[in-house]
Each structure stands twice: as structure tokens, then as C-alpha cells.
């Protein structure tokens, strides 16, 4: 269980990830803010607490691996990596500019700390399966973590991989679905209803849980339970809201991809700074 201080620390990390993400997106002028925001707490728990990674040696062989299957949410992953020291924070201002190391979709050959290249939805979960299978075959004990989008689960490849991972008992694979209920064209329910995702993965043979994806303690507990599993892969369904933590995005009917002005950045950052001050007072 996370201590009160650790919860505060991870909430602070979440707020810092949001600030850095919004700054990067406003410098670029627009971007996939909705999905970048909704997975922030999970990134904070993974990169702030759970994952064994080394920013000084991003290719260390025994590190845990991460696959951003919803590759378009790169900006908040980059913010988390920069805050962990994989590259200077200043790089975030080059998001989507020519010759940047930070393209909108995650690219292992461009960004220190990015383990797999994604962007074509449905593929990341197969990569995560390959990573977990390869690690086990090569005699390594590291974990592979993977975040999928909910809309991404429309892809047939996700379910091919779901069958495979259970069949091959990939218990060092821990995946998440960022179930923020919204995809590019509208609500998930209206476009291609996913129904009870937890039950679906359970019936595919996974150890499946559902947690509040904006509560770091619940995410952490879910991961701990998943790590305790043997002989089956784990799925954690994150109940989230698309755009969470960015009032501007939350106010839009659809916030998959939005223009972000400097004024909006300023308002959001001032608000996040106030939240950070409150959290720090709570710590003291």
C-alpha cells in the first residue's frame, strides 16, 4: 500500500506531468490532449514508483519495458520521461517540430526511454506480448507494461494478442486500458461499444481488474496484485475521463485532438500550480 506521502508525491508528479504536457502541446499549437491527460496518473505510478528504469542508461538490458500502444498520447509520456531525466525538459518545446526527438506518436529510435514504436493502433499489445515472451525465453525477469486506448480495442489485433497472452501464460505482462469512454468520432458507446471490458479480458483468460484511473493508490494496488499473479497476464481497466486535469479539454464535447493556445496554457498552468501548492501544504 502506498503511504500518504507517496500518494502526495505521485499526485505531485501527475500535476507536473500535466503541466509539462500542456506546455509542450501549446508550443506545438495543438495535439492529442485528451488521451494524453487521461493516462497521466498511470504514467506517474509507473515512472514514479513501479518501473525499474535508468534515465542515465535507457537501454539497460534488465530494465522494465513500456509500450504505449495508444501511441498518439506520446506527449504525456515524453513529459514523464523528461521529468525523470531521460532528456532535458527543454526538449518538450520541440514537440512535433522538424527534426525533433519527440514526434506525436512514440518512436523508439528517436526518444530516449521509449522502448517500442507505435502509432498504428492495435499493434502495441502484440509488441508487449513479444517483449514479455522474449524476456521469458531469454531468461530475464523484467516486466512489460502496456497502455491501450479504449477506442483501440476496436482493432481485431488486440483480441488476437489477448488470446495469445493467456495461452502462453505471459504473467510478466501487465496491460492497462485507458477507458476514458471517448474516441476520435465520439463516445465509445456510440461508435463501437466495448461493453464490460474487464469481463471480456477475464473471459479471455486474463487476471482483470478495474480501478479508478485517476487514483494513484488504486492504480498502484492494481499493479501489485497483478505482479502477484502467476501463469496469466494481467489487465487493469482504468476508469478515466478524457482530458482529465485540463479544464479546457474537459469542457469540450470531444477532446481527442485540440488546438492549445498560450492563453489556455497560462490558465491551466496557473490552476495546476495552485493545486500543487495545496498538495505541498498537505505534505507539510
Amino acid at each position: 500500500m502506498l503511504s500518504k506521502d507517496e500518494i502526495l508525491r505521485l499526485n505531485l508528479f501527475s500535476a507536473e506531468i500535466r503541466k509539462a504536457t500542456i506546455h509542450a502541446l501549446s508550443t506545438a499549437g495543438s495535439g492529442h490532449i485528451g488521451g494524453a491527460m487521461s493516462m497521466v496518473e498511470t504514467l506517474a505510478v509507473l515512472y514514479g514508483k513501479v518501473m525499474n528504469v535508468d534515465p542515465q542508461n535507457p537501454h539497460r538490458k534488465d530494465r522494465d519495458r513500456f509500450v504505449l500502444s495508444k501511441g498518439h498520447s506520446g506527449p504525456s509520456l515524453y513529459a514523464a520521461l523528461a521529468l525523470r531525466g531521460f532528456f532535458p525538459l527543454k526538449e518538450l518545446e520541440t514537440l512535433n517540430q522538424g527534426d525533433t526527438i519527440l514526434p506525436s506518436h512514440a518512436d523508439r529510435n528517436k526518444t530516449p526511454g521509449v522502448d517500442f514504436s507505435t502509432g498504428s493502433l492495435g499493434q502495441g499489445i502484440s509488441m508487449a506480448a513479444g517483449s514479455a515472451l522474449g524476456a521469458r525465453y531469454m531468461g530475464n525477469s523484467y516486466y512489460t507494461y502496456c497502455i491501450l486506448g479504449d477506442g483501440e480495442c476496436d482493432e481485431g489485433q488486440v483480441w488476437e494478442a489477448a488470446l495469445f497472452c493467456a495461452q502462453h501464460k505471459l504473467d510478466h505482462l501487465i496491460a492497462f486500458v485507458d477507458y476514458n469512454q471517448q474516441q476520435l468520432d465520439g463516445s465509445v458507446e456510440e461508435v463501437c461499444h466495448l461493453g464490460d471490458l474487464r469481463l471480456k479480458f477475464e473471459q479471455f483468460g486474463w487476471y482483470a481488474q478495474e480501478v479508478d484511473g485517476h487514483e494513484v493508490s488504486q492504480i498502484y494496488e492494481g499493479i501489485r496484485k497483478a505482479q502477484g499473479q502467476t501463469g496469466r497476464p494481467s489487465m487493469i481497466i482504468l476508469r478515466t475521463q478524457k482530458g482529465w486535469g485540463c479544464e479546457y479539454a474537459l469542457a469540450q464535447p470531444i477532446c481527442h485532438h485540440l488546438p492549445i493556445s498560450k492563453e489556455i496554457e497560462q490558465q491551466e498552468i496557473e490552476r495546476l500550480d495552485r493545486e500543487i501548492e495545496e498538495m505541498k501544504r498537505g505534505m507539510a
Binding site: K61, R65, D115, F116, Q123, S126, M127, A128, A129, G130, S131, L133, G134, A135, Y137, M138, N140, G156, Q157, E160, A161, L163, F164, Q167
Partner: peptide, 20 residues
């Protein structure tokens, strides 16, 4: 892998990241 060529190919390539 069973009859799932797309997953097989993506997974096989990714396994090489682990040294396979």
C-alpha cells in the same frame, strides 16, 4: 500462435528487442 498472422508478426519482431 494459432491463426493470427498479424499478432504473430508484430510479436515476433518485438521479441527481438529482448534478444531473440
Amino acid at each position: 500462435c494459432g491463426i493470427q498472422e498479424a499478432n504473430m508478426v508484430g510479436m515476433a519482431a518485438a521479441a527481438s528487442e529482448a534478444g531473440v
